[in-house]
């Protein structure tokens, strides 16, 4: 192992390598602890997801065979095929063993491996949720900063008011409203956007496809952003308000900095620290939002897949998706823990 950057340490900065090694050990221990926490959470999620969906009303085999004449033998055969004739504990063990082999079982509805289904649908969800969260976070941070810096001003009241109003609106309702007003072509507004889906069938060419997807993306993303950004705004606003009376801001003003620079260079970097953590912690709500938005806009992603799976109930599918969604949230929290020290020098050492 080499010790780079060591030669740069100026004379008099002795005891460097020992301190450095100690720092690395402490860092590794920190990361190890965070990883362990994540692993424990993940295990809890696996167990929960198995039992949770078995409480759902409805008989999967009944739903699968709905509308068709089936004999009792045929029904039994189906049960045997999907392992539903086994005792619960046996099913649980099979499920756990499967998860570790990335064998997520076969979907009751689609009759193809769940892993394959997820592979097909994960792209659109990442696209939608990623774009939506990024825009919502940026919007929330910018507007929250403005609102907090001028607390009680018209800007503050309008921004907070609008954000809270949109926050309180259910996303499916807002989605439907947008479809009716901007996409259906009803009334005097022409149908500016597609009512659903991700792509117009038959589109070819990279640029055309990209433009078409972007066009389809507008309304679902707008719905998500509208419902989600308020939280980011409120978090940023309140952490900025916490910093407002701080002495280092008086120092910054005393130095002769313009108000905008006091805000940008001093207040925002400090206010961002608690905000970043809270933003990551709130990502769970993004998952909930994505399920509803995808369903309303028939977006071919994991959310609409989950929704359709719930109605059956398609146990292998919803279990796997539940674990996947929860893992995403756990992963984000882990990421927050790992990113935070990069932002806050006080945690780094």
């Amino acid at each position: 192992m080499t010790a780079p950057a060591h030669s740069e340490a100026p004379a008099g900065h002795g005891a460097g390598s020992g301190e450095q090694r100690e720092g690395i050990v402490r860092g590794l221990r920190y990361i190890g602890a965070k990883l362990l926490t994540a692993a424990v959470s993940l295990f809890a999620v696996m167990v929960t997801s198995f039992f949770l969906f078995r409480i759902l009303p409805g008989d999967p085999v009944r739903s699968m065979t709905q509308g068709r004449e089936v004999t009792v033998e045929q029904e039994q055969e189906l049960r045997r095929q999907f392992g539903l004739d086994q005792p619960l504990w046996q099913q649980f063990l099979d499920y756990c063993a499967g998860l570790f082999r990335f064998d997520l079982g076969v979907s009751y509805q689609y009759r193809i491996p769940v892993a394959e289904l997820i592979g097909e649908r994960i792209g659109p969800t990442v696209l939608l949720a990623g774009t939506g969260t990024l825009i919502a976070a940026l919007l929330g941070l910018v507007l929250g900063t403005r609102a907090g810096w001028r607390r009680g001003s018209a800007t503050d009241r309008v921004n907070t008011g609008v954000a809270l109003l949109l926050w309180s609106v259910p996303s499916f309702w807002l989605g439907l409203l947008l479809i009716v007003v901007l996409a259906s072509g009803a009334g005097w507004v022409p149908g500016l956007f597609p009512t659903g889906g991700m792509m117009t069938p038959g589109t070819t060419g990279l640029l055309d496809v990209a433009l078409d997807v972007a066009h389809h993306l507008v309304l679902p993303v707008a719905t998500m952003v509208a419902v989600v950004y308020a939280q980011y705004l409120m978090i940023m606003r309140s952490s900025l308000l916490d910093e407002m009376g701080a002495d280092y801001l008086t120092t910054a003003r005393a130095k002769g900095l313009r108000d905008a620079l006091v805000l940008r260079r001093h207040a925002v970097p400090n206010a961002l620290l608690p905000t970043v953590t809270l933003i990551f912690l709130n990502l769970g709500q993004v998952v909930g939002g994505v399920i509803l938005v995808e369903t309303v806009f028939a977006w071919p992603g994991l959310g609409s897949l989950f929704y359709s799976g719930l109605t059956v109930p398609d146990l292998p599918l919803v279990q796997a998706l539940f674990v996947l969604f929860a893992s995403a949230v756990i992963l984000m929290n882990l990421l927050a823990d790992l990113v935070y020290p990069l932002l806050d020098p006080r945690v780094r050492t």
């Binding site: 280092y248 120092t251 900095l257």
Partner: peptide, 24 residues
């Protein structure tokens, strides 16, 4: 006023812990 601040008169504040920006 901004030009006078710090160049004309500067201040050493009461508590240096809080008067310095912790993340810079």
């Amino acid at each position: 006023l901004r030009a006078v601040r710090w160049a004309g008169a500067s201040i050493v504040f009461q508590g240096a812990m809080h008067s310095l920006n912790a993340v810079r």
